[in-house]
Design a protein around this nucleic acid. Sequence first.
RNA 1: GGCGCCGUAGCUCAAUUGGUUAGAGUACUGGACUGUCGAUCCAGUGGUUGCGGGUUCGAGUCCCGUCGGCGUCGCCA
Length: 596
Amino acid sequence: MLRTHTCGDLRLTDKGTTVTLCGWVDSYRDHGGGLFVDLRDRYGITQVVFNPPDTPQDIIDASKDLRAEYVIQVTGKVEPRPEGMANRKHASGEIELRVTELKLLNKSKAPPVSPSESITEIPNEDLRLKHRFLDLRRPVMQRAMILRDKITKGMRDYFADLNFIDVETPILGRSTPEGARDYLVPSRVHHGKFYALPQSPQLYKQILMIAGYDRYVQVARCFRDEDLRADRQPEFTQLDLEMAFIDDDDIMTLIDGLVVKLAKDLLDIDVPTPLPRMTYDEAMRRFGHDAPDLRYGLEIVDLTDLAPQSDFGVFKSVTDAGGHVRAICVPGGANHYSRRGIDALTEFVKGLGAKGLAYFRVNEEGVLDSNIAKFFSEELRAEMGTRLDAKPGDLVLFSADKWLGTCKVLHGLRKKIGEEMKLYDPKAMNFSWVVQFPMFERTEDADNPQAIGKWSAMHHPFTAPLDDSVDHLDDDPAKCRAKAYDLIINGYEAGGGTIRIHDPEVQSKVFGLLGIDKETAQDRFGFLLEALAYGAPPHGGIALGLDRMVMLFGGFDNIRDVIAFPKTQKATDLMTEAPGLVDAKQLKELAIKTDL
RNA sequence: GGCGCCGUAGCUCAAUUGGUUAGAGUACUGGACUGUCGAUCCAGUGGUUGCGGGUUCGAGUCCCGUCGGCGUCGCCA
């Protein structure tokens, strides 16, 4: 060992002891006669002092050459700092190391990305990603990685205590055309054939249930070749689990327990259980989204029935066409959003597909007023005000469109205004479930005109219907609700799962609705269908998005900050420059010709 | 693929309506300084304004294209 302690260890109680520290020069302060260095490692910062008479002159002279990020080993005596010189910013701030020996372990070029927390300016993200070794040296990033480790370990411990066993599943698998685009790996042995990287271990974990491993868990890497977002990476990590002989309530109760433990251990928050559960239909009705942020209100109010009483052409034509008129009432919004502010909101909703933004301000007398007020009788405005619980100074924003259109616009407004008006405590954590998702949705895929209007699975084709929904498979698939549940944290989908179909008859009906004929089913999932025929227990599970949970628990606003080596929005790695070209020889072995 | 924001010194940023030699802080280099902790003080080095084209007497600034980063819609069972 090159050191006796870390830079976060030493306290007043260590005074008088001789210790050796190693670390990076976080900063240095040269006073001519002597010099101070803040020495950093991942445990903290300790001030090391090169001053006479404790430090020999030749060591002081050598210390003059130290620069940011040089790696040094120093030996000396731990001493309390002089009266009034303690630095409360650091845990070891009451002591300092009086250096008697210095060894330069390595030099550093002047860092383009400063790891020092004393530099408050954070470099552009492309620089951080290119020099990730420096970026990851920043204490905030080290805290993120440590938090990630704690969450992962907390999860593993929790499930291990409950008799779950960790089973690894393949990375090289088989492509299934449903769902996200696959990352493909060409086979050298079988020219023209490809492995696919797993989008999730879904099918394998069902096989494990059938194989009798009734409690499976895995920290699983997953891959989806789709476009990126602030909360989406092409490769990400799921805490994946599956159980046999359980129902949906068991999975949710299990995860409630995990959430309580993690919130208590990591954030010292007491989360009451059971976590609230809201159906998908209610979430869409009240918040316009299947992952509502429940840290603030701004609930949607449906005014479709009142709209025809107005003379406002936009509302009337929408309701005549079977659409909806819905609104949110923003408390204090009339003062927060000026004319120009509302123009900005209008531009914003146009980006979401709205044609415009109808609004009312609520004036001093509590009356709804705006440029469209003339189309609404006094009585009608009063009635709308009552429904909306509108108070003087509020702002009422409308969306008139098809149901999903109003959901999208009002959810967008709600989210934007919640942020802009700071309607919630950024440190607050809100956990809930959204349950009873529709089994099927109508395809609106413009790339594939033949598929438009056909049913597709909202989760995957093995999702079980609610017990009282089974009959709707025959008469009205749109009414069919699934044993599906999403864990929602602060408006993010932090995890999701389902109970799986284990009844061959139900499975075949679902395949039928999805237009998957026997041959296709056999070709794509033959192994699973075969396995299901050999005594499959009732089973189901869930997958938690580990990266997102770390992001939310750590208060980060993007997922890259909790992944050591993330990809850019164009799915490249700026440090390694992946993806890269390969040799012609490699392509030839794989029988691949590129067409650029 | 669409929309939007951004790209100026190693780094973070500024530069009036398109107008003189593109500035500041920091880093770096040299010097001063015995208790600092974003040390301080003095001096200095450092620029193809991402790249290419265009408009103009004149472009960091306006236009077109392109590359890169970010956000978002589509997409993500």
